[in-house]
Design a protein around this nucleic acid. Structure first.
Length: 197
DNA sequence: CTTTCGATGATCT
DNA sequence: GATCATCGAAAGG
């Protein structure tokens, strides 16, 4: 059951609020097939992961800190953190304010501004442009400057779309909550960060 | 095809 | 001081 949101509806509109208010695993599944852009550059979301409250793998698990503050903010806004000292990763906050839930955007199928993204990524082929959470932030030029920003207004754009089919499996790169099948992907996509088991 | 490993810095104990 | 929601190059089958 998917909820659709008019991307041009008013910030804080009822439909949009209802979309983001749901548990992260539902939002994560529904975001597959949507288009994420930054200044008009980006592509279709083909892989996501959900991180919830009371989830040992989640940055929010041990409470609010300076780093994860945006994760406790309003739904539909960005939570951005630095990974392994090198990469940025972008999440869409879900749930109610203060809850601490989010959806990590893990891979895009490049569709808009492919040349720009290739230049930013050092001339990589389309396959590898956005097929990973650190890769796509480099391709879209996302950084901590965007932390807390709403995904429904500039420089971001988030456009509802359709997917072919939904895959799910365990999340990647974590050491706790390893069994929880909260990684989602588009069936048949050639732009995933890794195959689904 | 697979596995291994170094880079690099914020965060938290 | 240890741990990372990673990437890419290099080495091995």
């Amino acid at each position: 059951m998917s909820l659709f949101v008019d991307p041009h509806s008013e910030p804080g509109g009822a439909a949009r609020q209802a979309f983001w208010l749901r548990p992260p695993q539902e939002v994560a599944a529904d975001l597959i097939g949507w288009v994420l852009l930054v200044d008009g550059v980006g592509g279709r979301i083909v892989e996501t992961e959900a991180y919830g409250p009371n989830d040992p793998a989640s940055h929010s698990f041990n409470g609010r800190t300076r780093r994860n503050a945006a994760m406790f903010g309003p739904g539909g806004h960005a939570y951005i953190y630095r990974s392994y000292g090198l990469h940025w990763c972008v999440n869409a906050v879900t749930g109610s304010e203060g809850e601490g839930a989010a959806v990590l955007i893990r891979a895009l199928e490049p569709t808009h501004g492919v040349e720009i993204m290739a230049a930013r990524r050092g001339g990589m082929d389309a396959r590898a442009l956005c097929s990973g959470p650190g890769r796509l932030t480099q391709a879209l030029a996302v950084s901590d400057a965007h932390n807390g920003a709403p995904l429904h207004s500039k420089p971001f754009a988030l456009i509802p779309g359709r997917r072919q089919g939904l895959l799910s499996g365990p999340r990647i790169g974590i050491s706790k909550g390893v069994e929880t099948p909260w990684r989602f992907g588009e069936a048949g996509s050639g732009f995933l960060s890794r195959r689904f088991g």
